[in-house]
Design a protein around this nucleic acid. Structure first.
Lengths: 221, 221, 221, 221
DNA sequence: GATGAATGAGCTTTCATTCAT
DNA sequence: TATGAATGAAAGCTCATTCAT
């Protein structure tokens, strides 16, 4: 896991990380990110402990504060890095994606996420935290960006489907996009409740197929 | 808002509230519930403060402890009362519900929830907390009961739809139920993010119609 | 266990108990004494809880305060009653005591205490508390009375022994008395550390004999 | 008063003190020990207050917790340091001790303690707390070590006395040892009750002589 | 006279943040 | 720059005492 240096520069400009942090070796940066992510994946923001994060990252608590000024800054940093990771995933996914039929694109978009969640458990838990813990005002901004990105990609799929006459024209694009996002989010939550994503992968894949079939052909007999 | 005295008695029996609390005037009970609910609606359990709750309820912290023994007891109390409120809503709703067509029953189930959320803002925010904050082990138990209840009612609707030939037979009942719950949950979350439910009521109702149409007839052109 | 009414009257005069308490039925007085004694036998004064005592005595906490004004008053009351119990024991003992030889009188004085400790476990533990926990200034006064009484009786024995030519004349009476009290106190402490007095009775009796022999004939070969 | 650094290292290894404490200047360590000792000498463990100790030591309560993790840790620390002080006293005493006659060795052992008690008043009071307050489970362990040490040295004296034909053979060694410990403990307690050890030094020394004479030649006329 | 609800001072413990080294 | 010792605000909880009923 390597953190994008351009992102770090931008975060420094925005006052989220300090110059001191920017000058750190990539390895140390990654260590801090990893430690903070896994702590935040386990505990609510308010309960996450700088001591534990510093310990896990192999640095001192003083340094941590020096890098991010406040606990909140650390949290923003993690969220921004995660956001960029997720963006990369989406970009890579769409770069490789080559299905033709809309229904297949939808199914694969969901399945792609299942796989993504499975790969990075820490990231996934953090994503859920971000999505569902609206305590800290910080999350709101990041979360809406994540949502926006995801909706953007779904919109691409839906628009194309409508244009090619595969998807109904009488529904608003945005409504269809939200429906799809809703089902994806729901699967995400189910995945979060199951013991490990991998062990229940089969179950989630089946459910995805049922959802896809249901939404595509409708529930009507 | 009046708290069911029978529930209080049961909670006392289960050791969640004390006799002292049971003997309180209904007004005071309600004040405590309201204060705790709104605190818990805003802050994570760990960060919710007895001081603030006591202040908002107009009593001393000492009294609060005397009523519930632990912070955890207070939380359990709030969750149980909320659960019972939601159960009452569902039961009342189904007692009054008289639609015949499955699609109408589904639409109305969602619309009924919209109305419910609009009435009790504090309750609604607490419901969201409960639903999406899976840190505290306490929530798990309550949450699964809430889920169960909701899924139960959805199952009733779906089964009936399948039996009467209105809903496809080739999908598993449980899958259909989860789809519907997924969309309902998503609308719930959207409602939570909008400034107030009432102001955006029109928006949510339209969305409900679009979702219903989409899910019923399918997205396929 | 019946509490001497004259003592209660005196304690009221000294402001330790209230008139309200004096007017209580003997049974209730005894219940309060018993509950407080056993609580104080278990916990340090500061840690002893009025709630527990009230609960054990079958009265309300409010009453407890009304009877003794302060927690401290309750403690003084218990100490005074205990003192009177111990006095009764000593008086009864000496009324029955009929040994002739000084060494026998000493031995029996100790053995009598062993028996006394064994009978009233609560009293015994409280006695130890009183003797060895010099936190509360209260104890000092009571404790010195207890000591005084005991020393008084020992002095009687010693004086008589000296007069009858059984005990050395060259030692000060008071020194001999303190020696005997020291050994008795030590046995008392040992008894307190053993699981129950009764189970280790044999051990303590043997030790008493050894001590008596040692002190009487001297350790010199 | 300087605290043995090796002991601190060992206590850190056992998790009783933290590295932070170990790195403190000897002066600060001593200040903390002194403050805690005098607080514990006055109040029962449960009532001893970190606030007072921190205040007396001239540090913040937060630091105190950082040094010992728990209140219990602080108590263990004090007990262990005291234990080591007492051990040093005993070792030094026996290294210097050169009396030949058993009775002299006994007398001097007691007199040595008198001097020791007089030097460290805080230590002495703490020793008494430890010895006579058997509430906290912690004390038990330390106390039994202290007792064991003292009994060990007494046993050495007694055994030697028996071997050299100075002490009676017909009593069990352990009984004689306990007798001596009992008298020493009693003097200890008397010393604790007197205003200051020094002022009543003469009295205690006389008493020691009387006890020694009484126990050695016996009370019998 | 009896009750127990209400209170608030006190406790230990956690932890982000400051700052001297 | 990195460290971690020092701090103090805030938390949950206990409990003697007050006082209205």
């Amino acid at each position: 896991m390597v953190i994008d240096e351009n992102l770090v520069v931008e975060l420094e400009r925005r006052g989220i990380v300090t110059a001191t942090f920017r000058k750190l070796s990539p390895a140390k940066k990654a260590a801090v990110y990893g430690a903070a992510l896994s702590e935040l994946a386990q505990a609510v923001f308010e309960k996450a402990s700088l001591d534990r994060i510093a310990g896990a990252a192999g640095i001192s608590k003083g340094s941590l504060i020096q890098y991010f000024r406040h606990k909140e800054g650390l949290f923003q940093f993690v969220a921004e890095v995660y956001l960029s990771e997720y963006r990369v995933f989406l970009e890579d996914y769409f770069a490789r994606e080559n299905a033709v039929r809309s229904i297949d694109r939808i199914r694969q978009f969901i399945l792609g996420h299942l796989e993504y969640w499975e790969k990075g458990r820490g990231q996934f838990r953090f994503h859920l935290k971000l999505a569902y813990e609206n305590d800290s005002g910080l999350t709101k901004a990041i979360l809406s960006k994540i949502r926006e990105m995801r909706l953007e990609y779904l919109k691409t799929i839906v628009r194309r489907g409508v244009e090619t006459g595969q998807i109904r024209k009488d529904l608003e694009d945005s409504s269809v996009v939200l429906m799809l996002d809703g089902l994806l989010s729901y699967l995400e939550r189910l995945a979060g409740e199951l013991p490990t994503v991998s062990r229940s992968r089969q179950y989630l894949e089946n459910l995805t197929d049922e959802f896809a079939s249901g939404i595509w052909d409708g529930l009507k007999a």
